[in-house]
Write a protein that binds this DNA or RNA. Structure first.
Lengths: 236, 236
DNA sequence: AACGGTCTAATCCCTTTGGTCTACTTAGCC
DNA sequence: GGCTAAGTAGACCAAAGGGATTAGACCGTT
């Protein structure tokens, strides 16, 4: 919108943290040690969100651990506004799950309160320059978690007792169409075979997948790696 | 450089790179500048995989860009062996998609050939110590890509023209059961209503979702955020 | 009290799907 | 040449699903 050129202007920062002392501490730090402007602060997530709407800061430093409304939800709401506001998560915990969720929601950075103040400033600079900043210690944890979640998925799917492997090529074609909501008539015409042939294939599929009807077959297929590509945006 | 004490034994390294010159260069480097052992090398991915099975190195440095068999597939095969072998991807490209796929498969590190040799050694050390190493420039790219893929997904699903929002509470209950492969009879008995009532609800569901049959309704539900939790391992 | 939305349910009718059995053709294999 | 697996297709019957209409009960709102 009105974001001219690079970042010649001082980045405008907003702080949201339920701990007032901490809030003023960070504010002091930023004002002293950097050339950023803290334009607003809030000890309450909901008020903070309103302020974000009003002032449209470049960057929001958001404490994730707050009572009433947790910081992740607040962050999500800010992301939904699509104002281009960059949110940096700030918390005392380096819980991988928390890190993962924050990054998934769209956090542009994640820093621990225990980290050196210089690192905070550096993180803000990086984020102000359009990068995403995650300390390498945390990113290592993130990746552990990330890979584990994919591994579990892969295990569940590509197990050797996947009944889908028993299907013949033609049966797979038929099932593929069923997973698209096509009727037997439709399958017949698309595969240039008769409807009774489709029924024969379908019955064989039921036997092999140990299910009783079309819906169950489709669900089995979907839950066991069949045509995973549509469901998993980022395929290997 | 000699960081003794962190890992007792010298880590055993294997190199796979189709470029022989590069291979020997890295080997030299590692032998000279670190206390790791290069126990085997290969200019061919398939041979490399065999060697991995045979020697079970601690770490494999794998070039991702190779002819015949690409490094990602090779890496995936090595991961499938579940030998605990740590693979570091090595390539000339910092393509975010490539980085993402490598990390998804289970790469314990990703380094560019253009990076300083000290960084290569450092990456190996980190990985040897059980961490995952991704240079911050690359991890920034990774996160961009990562967040974008989730954003697309969120957009697709939580769009305001999601027909599922028109369903009443009872209709949702019915649909929920349908997405589990339950028949009308089953729905009726589980919800303590008659089968004809189920049919009424189902017909209303069809109208609202603009579909013609059970399978299509289930597919619509699954593709539009309904009971997403089962499909998405790591929910927010 | 009247209205609209939801949940419930029935009836009638027709279509689709599912189960079983048989049978022909083709391709690959010992 | 016979065997097997896969693909094709028919007949027949039963069960389930789907479309349309009607209608009573309940609840919250106006």
């Amino acid at each position: 919108m009105r974001r001219i050129g690079e970042f010649k202007k001082k980045a405008r920062i907003m702080l949201i943290d339920d701990n007032f002392d901490h809030l003023s501490g960070i504010k002091e730090l930023i004002n002293m040690e950097s050339n950023f402007d803290v334009i607003a602060t809030s000890t309450n997530a909901n008020v903070g969100i309103s302020l974000v709407k009003k002032y449209r800061p470049d960057i929001v430093l958001m404490d994730i651990n707050m009572p009433e409304k947790d910081g992740l939800s607040a962050m999500q709401e800010i992301e939904k506004l699509e104002l281009g506001v960059k949110v940096i998560a700030l918390t005392g915990y380096d819980d991988p799950d928390l890190i993962f969720r924050a990054m998934k929601i769209g956090a542009k950075g994640y820093i621990l309160k225990t980290m050196a103040s210089a690192q905070l400033i550096y993180a803000i600079e990086e984020v102000a320059n359009g990068k995403i900043y995650l300390p390498s210690a945390l990113s290592s944890r993130f990746f552990d978690y990330f890979q584990k979640s994919f591994k579990e998925e892969a295990n569940e799917v590509s197990d050797e007792d996947n009944l889908l492997t028993y299907l013949t090529a033609r049966e797979e074609e038929v099932l593929e169409l069923l997973t698209q909501g096509v009727t037997y008539k439709g399958v017949a015409s698309q595969l240039f075979i008769s409807e009774t042939t489709v029924k024969t294939h379908v019955n064989n599929i039921f036997q092999k997948l140990q299910v009783n009807d079309r819906t169950q077959a489709v669900l089995y297929a979907l839950n066991n790696g069949f045509s995973n590509r549509r469901r998993m945006k980022v395929a290997i």
